[in-house]
Nucleic acid binder design. Sequence first.
RNA 1: GCCGACGUAGCUCAACGGUAGAGCAGCUGAUUUGUAAUCAGCAGGUUGCCGGUUCGAAUCCGGCCGUCGGCUCCA
Length: 636
Amino acid sequence: MINITLPDGQVKSGLVGVTPAEVARGISNSLARRALAARVAGRVVDLSAPLNEDASLAILTFEDKDGRQVFRHSSAHLLAAAVQRLFPGTLFAIGPAIEDGFYYDFGAKRPFTPEDLAAIKEEMQRLAKADLPFERGEITRDEALERFAGQTYKEELIRGLAEDATISTYRLGDFVDLCAGPHVPSSGYLRAFELTSVAGAYWRGDERNPMLQRVYGTAYPDQKQLEEHLRRIEEARKRDHRRLGQELDLFSIQDEAPGFPFFHPKGMVLRNELEQFWREEHRRAGYQEIRTPLIMNRSLWERSGHWDHYRENMYFTRIDEIDYAVKPMNCPGAILVYRNRLHSYRELPLRLCEMGLVHRHELSGVLHGLMRVRAFTQDDAHIFMLPSRIRDEVTGVIEMVDRFYSVFGFKYRVELSTRPENSMGSDADWEAATTALAGALEGRGTPYQVNEGDGAFYGPKIDFHLEDCLGRTWQCGTIQLDFQMPEKFDLTYVGEDGQKHRPVMVHRVIFGSIERFIAILTEHFAGAFPAWLAPVQVRVFPITDRQAGYAEKVRSALAEAGVRADADLRNEKVNYKVREAQKAHIPYMLVTGDREVAAGTVAVRHRTRGDLGAVDLTEFIGTIREEIASRKTDAV
RNA sequence: GCCGACGUAGCUCAACGGUAGAGCAGCUGAUUUGUAAUCAGCAGGUUGCCGGUUCGAAUCCGGCCGUCGGCUCCA
């Protein structure tokens, strides 16, 4: 007999060799039905894997992350099995579970077409219906090499395995795959799936390797959940900032300037509002704003290290036979400002902020609306300070980031990235810098996750990933500590002792890039920006031409009060004007008919709260000004 | 950059070897309207660009430009 400890602490005894499937049946029928795999002593295994000694056991269902992974991974095998039947001779690479589904990479004779995908899906459905078991086998390295002879990618994978590794295979019908597993018991478990796209992907993600055909899919335990997932994708598509940017006339990207966005009047309102908010907050937090040139001499970039570490992404130009570079970062400019005169320890920390327009060459294939561009504006700041002040300063920045994101209603996650390979500086400096950042986070009790080797070439960093209303995360804010630049540029301050000392520098952004932040806001709010950001805050419309004069008076009273208002005086029905204003997500519509003219009121309609009835004009102006000034977001 | 798909009126799309069509938007007129589309008329395109095949090309072929999806998830 062995003892099996369940997650709730309950201990069950069972015979040696009892399987998780049997244990699940002993607990409840419904659990047994939903069971996909099991976690035994921390390892995820098949439901049929026998238990031979005392262990902890958790039955995994689709509700568990690991259970989902197993489910999707099995779906990838089903996909591969179908491909093997329809396209004999295909080479198989890897087929893992991913965030919302799975993929499988194939070395196919020709690219798959959408028609192929439809046929593959049908074959998958047939194989699922046949309810074929997933059968595990264990073989030696030599047997594996023999079995997968000619499957070049599998051979490469086998050779990459440790000498003493257990090599397992899983069979599904005629398809046998090299696979660590585990898997669901049989293909009948895979009831609801969809193949979503096909794309080229390099073997092992390296562009020097052959290009494979990657088929993406998603899978759920039932049709309802699958449909819900597809609906979420459709919702994300509707919110796509490129689509809304066009519909709401915020910005455009033209063939004449790929990756370099054009901001239209309405998009500029967003930008300017964000910048104004940013300036208010920075002034309050003791920052001073600067502006540095877009183009600076090549020697500056050589000195900063960008020439060696960042040249690939930079643009160059020549002026009077001399080489210049277009700035990809703002720090060297800020450093020149600092170096322009002597600084006393008394004026530190010196916080210089800059809405800096940077240009970076990105591969043409990765450009994406405002999210990935070749020119963008960083809401940058460089803080020069005494080494002893690092923790306090970083804490201050973290608090500022928290304040910014909360205004928009974003939740966020924090990551700490450590020293990468291609980096400058001594181990001791890196160690000290990394410790200081971690200390600031811990001092505030901010939970964070460590990303080994993901820092910038000049120092470690803290990244802020904010989460939008669809649960997607975006890296926006970052705080980077830098001991290298002050050294390279021989920055100094005069200390209490009258001697020169080396300051420490922090680079940081909060929005990250204004362009990208606007894209994120657009998708987060689905174009319905809070009143303080809305390009048009109020639209006034008369019911008939008779009230046009009054409507115009209302409009100008609003404009006078600093509210962005326009008037729709066209000869159209109210329904029509309401519809247009709703589609444009204008927060407030003011209808002015004969009744309102007579009473000196406006009939207020809010885009989500609907008809709010007639209100005195001055009263309305008071409330909306308050809503704007407090930068409220709509209650959702 | 690489692989694949795509590029037709301002927008969304049709026509897929016989010299381009609809809806919306725009303009003009009628209608004077109370909370998500009033009606009618008009106008709008070197079919991304360059070249080729053909009696004839939006359509077929090649090159270029651009857009979209992917190129991090390790049996």
